[in-house]
Design a protein around this nucleic acid. Sequence first.
DNA 1: CTGAAAGCGCTAACAT
DNA 2: ATGTTAGCGCTTTCAG
Lengths: 346, 346
Amino acid sequence: MTRQRLDRGPSPVRATLRDIAAAVELDVSTVSKVLNGGDIAVRSETRRRIIRAADDLRYTPNASARALKLSRTGALGLLVPDLSNPVYGRIARGAIRQAESASLATFMAELDEDADGDASRRLVLESRVDGLIVATARDASRLVDELKRSSLPYVFVNRKVPGSSRSITVRDEGGGALAAQTLIDAGHRDLAIIGGPSSVDTARRRRAGFEATCASNALDAPAVACGPYTLAGGRSAMRRLLEQPRRPTGVFASNTLSGLGALNAILRAGYAVPDDVSLITFDDDMASFTVPALTAIRMPLHELGARAVSELTRLLDGAPPRDVEIVTAPEVVLRDSVAPPPGRPA
Amino acid sequence: MTRQRLDRGPSPVRATLRDIAAAVELDVSTVSKVLNGGDIAVRSETRRRIIRAADDLRYTPNASARALKLSRTGALGLLVPDLSNPVYGRIARGAIRQAESASLATFMAELDEDADGDASRRLVLESRVDGLIVATARDASRLVDELKRSSLPYVFVNRKVPGSSRSITVRDEGGGALAAQTLIDAGHRDLAIIGGPSSVDTARRRRAGFEATCASNALDAPAVACGPYTLAGGRSAMRRLLEQPRRPTGVFASNTLSGLGALNAILRAGYAVPDDVSLITFDDDMASFTVPALTAIRMPLHELGARAVSELTRLLDGAPPRDVEIVTAPEVVLRDSVAPPPGRPA
DNA sequence: CTGAAAGCGCTAACAT
DNA sequence: ATGTTAGCGCTTTCAG
């Protein structure tokens, strides 16, 4: 049996190094060297011929072969809880683009509703990825165990994980603070916050920032109504706030859905926004669609995703993990839901 | 130089077939056979030992090696225009889950804003995927050329492509028809539609269904205002409709953003929804967040994504491509924006 | 400056 | 019932 590979016919589906080598009558190893590094000892005439042939044959290296040889796949995994949530969509966008500019392909998996994170775990067990970005709030301890065992680089995004310094976050405290300041600047002194579950660290940080700013402006502590970050959660939290003896005039809903729920509750209770109560919300996704359009705090989610990837590539290069807080300041997007409190027009 | 591989130490990062073979003192090929097919000629005692060892060593086959050998990667590519659009998020969800249940990993890339679809093209050129799902409205001819040349299976999702029978779609006509019927059932006779760009085939189909239902109910042809599927587009289309001599009492906005824009325009023009004009919109994503909450036509997007994957796997199995229309009927989600026309209470 | 050889982990046709 | 062999496409010493 000869070592010669059978002729694959006139139009090979995809050119390999061997095809190029044959075309220029050189060895595949030479071709490989030229096509990879740039600065190897090779006659420039030879180099030209090789490059030319590669071009003609539309050569692209086979990712599997390279991965097998190098133990590097050129791919990363991005794990999100829920793709139909635009917040994760925006984070994913940022990540995917950054990955592309680092020539990494992106596997995507949903981590919630995925029993034991099977899809994600397979990505690492089958060595499909060089690293993982975990953007889920849910407890993923099974997966994280697997990650530790496999010594695969990974980062968390938008959540701080105790005992693990590899979290990429945005300035949620700053966002909360900005919300408070915006209401205070409009003249409000009776503030309230619709918070999230205390188990969610972004929720805690937003609230902390809000409360700190109230304090530093010598206001009474704001009323607090917490609940799940859902439409219904925001609605019922808002109802509770409206029933308080001293009804707040400025309310911060610390999440998009909460904000929409809150608006809903206010309007249905017969109050006007912003005439009776001002409302400021978090994350900018649907805020412009309501009537009145909601003033909102916008976080640099796109950058968050991008940064997660660049931190991951740092790890791939051997750097030690670290926590990163995106310093880009949150912005307030002024729309129609914040005005001076009643009886105190601007 | 010996052919024996160097000892990798006590705790190999990831077990290979060779490790198992060593453990049970059999040949790797035997181990491979047992772990792959189930029904090969192997002593059941041997089989047990192998399975056991594989289990103990937590063996998972290396995807790159297998891909290289089999010319099958076990991965597919999902190309969407914009991940921050919840419509594509929902399609992606459905696709990813179905892929998982077919043991396929999912690469994700955005096709818009990606010069020449480079990321997507690399997926196919580098042989990273077994097939592609193209869920983008944009012209992707460069990519499609590449696909044809590479003879890689692919399907389009949510768009019919002329001269190509591999489109997975939902019943957009049915959705349009259902919108019309809903308004007609509420008593409306002066209908209008806010349509999309005529270059978008889903937009055309929604409109066709709407108009057909008007006709079959012996109504005058509805007023039509087309524009881009954006908030501003919907707003300005609606303004035009409101300025017409014979103002429509029932309006169908054939896209989510258009619907939001339309609501906006109506309210700002000083009309009430649904008292002065009823509004029904398309896609259910943000419709429940508005005040009043919008009645909407909900399409089976999740199923659309899932079906795209199952059609793709059919192609992978050698079946010829075909167009598929998801027969699951659109649903109307009744909320608060549709009521009988003014002067004709229920 | 270029080539020969070995091997990444896996599978499959062909022995034995 | 199990083993041998070859090779997928690539990179990387090491020799010439």
